[in-house]
């Protein structure tokens, strides 16, 4: 072996030793998830306060939402969380192809969720139920508040789905290029963590908006 390659190998070892800290990277991701929880936490506080003030109107407004649609979306999102986990396990077992397959399913679920959401929002808009919309203006203050929060919270959640999809897409690209591998999969795990967070927030949004009457 020539000296050059030897130094290169040494540098590479040095590099790995220097920069790779899976535990630290996971810790950073968890801290970031804390911030996300608190971001939504502010909204949940508002929801709780207004639910307390406008309990009856909230119940009436909630009946406008389609429980079936919400339930379908919940199932879709839960499935996508499962496939992300399966994807990580597949990569850990060095099955890159299967991993990518599961991640594709995750992405498909995410997109399906957004499509559903689009139709849900679209139907509401069609009926004039949106901030300053004709139908919503005829309703009481409680309903205005309910739908205001509904649009903000599900909208922000939808935005997180899009970010999550982009994150997973980026990770898939890196898996294809063998940057993320069976022994170096922290980024994939982080994207999975993020996806679970998006999922968990929906688990709270679904009952609060669709189920409680």
């Amino acid at each position: 072996m020539s000296q050059n390659t030897e130094t290169a190998v040494q540098e590479e070892i040095h590099e790995i030793h220097m920069h790779r800290d899976d535990f630290g990277s996971k810790m950073g991701m968890w801290l970031f998830l804390f911030t996300e929880v608190l971001l939504f936490g502010g909204l949940f506080i508002l929801y709780a306060s207004y639910r307390f003030i406008y309990a009856e109107s909230f119940a009436i407004a909630a009946s406008e939402l389609d429980v079936l649609m919400g339930a379908v979306n919940t199932v879709i999102l839960l499935t996508s969380s499962l496939t992300v986990v399966l994807g990580i396990v597949a990569l850990q077992k060095n099955n890159k192809k299967l991993c990518l397959f599961f991640l594709w399913v995750t992405i498909a679920c995410g997109i399906l969720f957004l499509v559903n959401k689009y139709f849900e929002w679209g139907a509401k808009f069609h009926h004039g139920i949106y901030p300053k919309g004709p139908a919503l203006q005829d309703m009481g203050e409680g309903e205005v508040m309910y739908f205001g929060l509904y649009y903000v919270m599900t909208g922000l959640h939808g935005l997180h789905i899009i970010v999550g999809l982009a994150f997973i897409g980026f990770v898939m690209w890196q898996i294809k290029k063998d940057v993320i591998t069976a022994t170096n999969f922290q980024k994939l795990e982080n994207s999975g963590l993020y996806w679970h967070l998006v999922d968990i927030i929906w688990i709270f949004l679904f009952p609060l908006f669709y189920l409680i009457h």
């Binding site: 508002l46 406008y54 901030p131 300053k132 203050e141 409680g142 205005v144 508040m145 205001g148 929060l149």
Partner: peptide
């Protein structure tokens, strides 16, 4: 931008929040 109402007292929101 949209007048969602959460902080606007004329729409039933509470500035105290």
């Amino acid at each position: 931008a949209f007048g969602i109402g959460v902080f606007d007292p004329t729409l039933g929101g509470d500035p105290l929040l």
